[in-house]
Simulated assay, not measured.
Amino acid sequence: MSNAASILLLAFLAITFIQSGYDKLFYWKDNLDFLKEHFAKTRLKNVVALALGHILVLELISGILCVVGCIELFVSNGRTFGLYGAVFSSITLLMLLFGQRLAKDYDGARTIVIYFIPAIIAVLLFS
């Protein structure tokens, strides 16, 4: 139970990013159509598909690293993959935040901050 908070934070991040990556992967066209409209008046309007692919890869890497971090922490008390998962999660969230701010979607940006707080707490716990 000494690692309960760390495991719960990594599980939270893993669920968040694996589910989001799954959604982007299996509902690519729906996501792309929504995001093209969302970013139509921004500098990203011509690179939405590339940005979506980039975010998809980062989300999957973040989620997988968090899962491996949970396993590593549970099995050997190791913290390396947990730290990598938390850092990748934070970077991914910063990229999402940048996009929301660029699109002037301040409610969406505020929602991302809610996810960013546990990610930063995880970085602190694993550092």
Score class of each variant (00 low, 15 high):
residue 1 M to H: 12
residue 2 S to Q: 14
residue 3 N to Q: 10
residue 4 A to W: 11
residue 6 S to R: 15
residue 6 S to E: 15
residue 8 L to N: 04
residue 9 L to W: 07
residue 10 L to F: 04
residue 12 F to D: 03
residue 14 A to C: 00
residue 19 Q to A: 11
residue 19 Q to R: 11
residue 20 S to T: 11
residue 21 G to F: 01
residue 25 L to Q: 09
residue 27 Y to D: 14
residue 31 N to W: 08
residue 34 F to I: 01
residue 35 L to C: 00
residue 35 L to M: 13
residue 35 L to H: 07
residue 37 E to P: 02
residue 37 E to W: 06
residue 39 F to Y: 14
residue 39 F to K: 02
residue 40 A to N: 05
residue 48 V to Q: 03
residue 49 A to G: 12
residue 50 L to D: 11
residue 55 I to F: 08
residue 55 I to N: 09
residue 56 L to Y: 12
residue 58 L to E: 12
residue 58 L to K: 05
residue 60 L to H: 02
residue 62 S to L: 07
residue 63 G to S: 04
residue 64 I to F: 11
residue 65 L to W: 00
residue 67 V to I: 15
residue 71 I to C: 05
residue 71 I to P: 04
residue 73 L to V: 09
residue 74 F to C: 04
residue 75 V to I: 14
residue 78 G to S: 15
residue 79 R to L: 11
residue 79 R to T: 15
residue 83 L to Q: 10
residue 84 Y to C: 09
residue 87 V to Y: 09
residue 87 V to S: 02
residue 88 F to N: 01
residue 89 S to M: 04
residue 92 T to I: 06
residue 93 L to P: 02
residue 93 L to T: 08
residue 95 M to H: 10
residue 96 L to T: 02
residue 97 L to P: 08
residue 99 G to T: 03
residue 99 G to R: 00
residue 100 Q to H: 15
residue 100 Q to Y: 13
residue 102 L to Q: 10
residue 103 A to Q: 10
residue 106 Y to W: 14
residue 106 Y to Q: 04
residue 107 D to P: 03
residue 109 A to M: 08
residue 111 T to E: 11
residue 111 T to A: 12
residue 114 I to S: 10
residue 114 I to F: 12
residue 115 Y to L: 12
residue 116 F to M: 15
residue 119 A to I: 08
residue 127 S to W: 10
